[in-house]
C-alpha cells in the first residue's frame, strides 16, 4: 500500500523534476521571480491595502468601527450562521462520504454529482432558489405566511443559503481519502465483533480526522465570507440581517470607507488564520499519514 497523499497533485518528487529539466538557473530564477511578483501584486498588495485603509483613521477609529452596534450585530449573525451551517455540513459531509466511499448502492453517482452542484451553481441562483421556494409568492410562501414563519429576509433564510453554498466542502475533502483507504480496516473491525457504529467511531472517523478538520476549515471560511447567495435572501436590514460581508458593502456605500475596510480586515484576518491553519494541517497531516500508525 503506498502512502499517496490526499490529493495526488504532485506525482513526482521535486528531485525528479529538477533532474529532468534543462533550464539554466537564470531561467528558473526568472520564473520564480515572476510567480512571486504575481502573488505579491494580486494577493499580498490588496491584503495590505485592506489593513492600511482600515487603519488610516487611527486605531481608535478602527476599534470603534468594530464595536458599534451594527457591526457587533453583523459579527454575531455571521458567527451564528457559521455555527449552524458548519456543523450541519460536517455531519452531512461525513455521512455522505461514508456512504459513497464505503458502500455500494443504486444512485451513488447521482449523489456524488448532486454534492458538487453548489460548486457549479452561481451563488445568486442559490439565493433565488430559496426566494422562489419560501418567498411570499413562492411554492411554500403562502403557507409559511399563514403560520407566521419567517424564512427568507430573516435569519433562517441566510442560514439555508449558507448551508447550500458550503455543502460540498467537507464531503469533497473526505470522499477521495475514504475511497483511497478502502474498507479493509472496517472489515477487520467488524470481523472482530465491533458494531457498525463502533466501527465508524473508532476506525473510520480517526482515519479521516485531519481531512475532516481541513474540510471544516474551508467550509467555515466560505460560510463567513459568502456574499452573493446571502445578499439575495437577506433583505439587508441594518443591525438585523446584515452579515459581515453585507455590512462591508453597506458601510462602503455610506462613504464610510475606514469602517468598511475595518470590517473587511476582520474577514481578511479570518482568511489568513484559515490559510495558516490549512498549511499547518497539510504539513502535519501529511506527516501523520507517512508515519503510518494504522497500516
Amino acid at each position: 500500500m503506498s502512502d499517496t497523499p490526499l490529493t495526488a497533485k504532485a506525482p513526482f518528487p521535486p528531485a525528479v523534476i529538477a533532474a529532468t529539466t534543462h533550464e539554466t538557473p537564470g531561467v528558473r530564477h526568472a520564473l520564480t521571480a515572476v510567480a512571486l511578483t504575481y502573488l505579491a501584486l494580486f494577493l499580498l498588495l490588496p491584503l495590505v491595502m485592506v489593513f492600511a485603509e482600515a487603519l488610516r483613521g487611527g486605531l481608535a477609529a478602527y476599534l470603534s468601527a468594530l464595536t458599534e452596534p451594527d457591526a457587533v450585530s453583523a459579527i454575531e449573525l455571521t458567527l451564528l450562521v457559521a455555527a449552524i451551517s458548519v456543523p450541519a455540513n460536517m455531519l452531512f459531509g461525513l455521512a455522505a462520504a461514508w456512504a459513497i466511499a464505503k458502500h455500494d448502492f443504486r444512485g451513488k453517482t447521482v449523489l456524488t454529482t448532486l454534492i458538487d452542484l453548489p460548486f457549479s451553481v452561481s451563488p445568486v441562483i442559490a439565493g433565488l432558489i430559496y426566494v422562489l421556494l419560501f418567498g411570499l409568492h413562492g411554492f411554500l410562501g403562502p403557507w409559511l405566511r399563514e403560520h407566521d414563519v419567517e424564512i427568507v429576509f430573516a435569519v433562517p433564510g441566510i442560514v439555508l443559503a449558507t448551508v447550500f453554498v458550503t455543502l460540498p466542502f467537507v464531503a469533497r475533502e473526505l470522499i477521495p481519502l475514504m475511497q483511497e483507504q478502502g474498507t479493509a480496516d472496517e472489515e477487520a473491525a467488524l470481523s472482530l465483533g465491533a458494531s457498525g457504529f463502533q466501527t465508524f467511531l473508532r476506525v473510520t472517523l480517526p482515519n479521516v480526522r485531519w481531512a475532516l478538520l481541513y474540510g471544516v476549515l474551508l467550509c467555515n471560511a466560505r460560510a463567513m465570507g459568502e456574499f452573493g447567495a446571502v445578499s439575495v435572501v437577506s433583505g439587508h436590514i441594518r443591525g438585523y440581517t446584515n452579515t459581515l460581508p453585507l455590512h462591508v458593502e453597506v458601510l462602503y456605500n455610506e462613504y464610510n470607507f475606514v469602517a468598511a475596510f475595518a470590517v473587511a480586515s476582520l474577514l481578511a484576518s479570518l482568511a489568513i488564520v484559515t490559510l495558516i491553519a490549512k498549511s499547518f494541517l497539510q504539513w502535519w497531516y501529511g506527516d501523520a499519514l507517512a508515519s503510518g500508525p494504522k497500516r
Binding site: V131, F134, G135, L136, H137, G138, G141, R145, E150, V152, F153, G235
Partner: peptide, 8 residues
Amino acid sequence: RAVIDGLA
C-alpha cells in the same frame, strides 16, 4: 421586489 417576495 423584495417586499413583493415577503420582506416584512
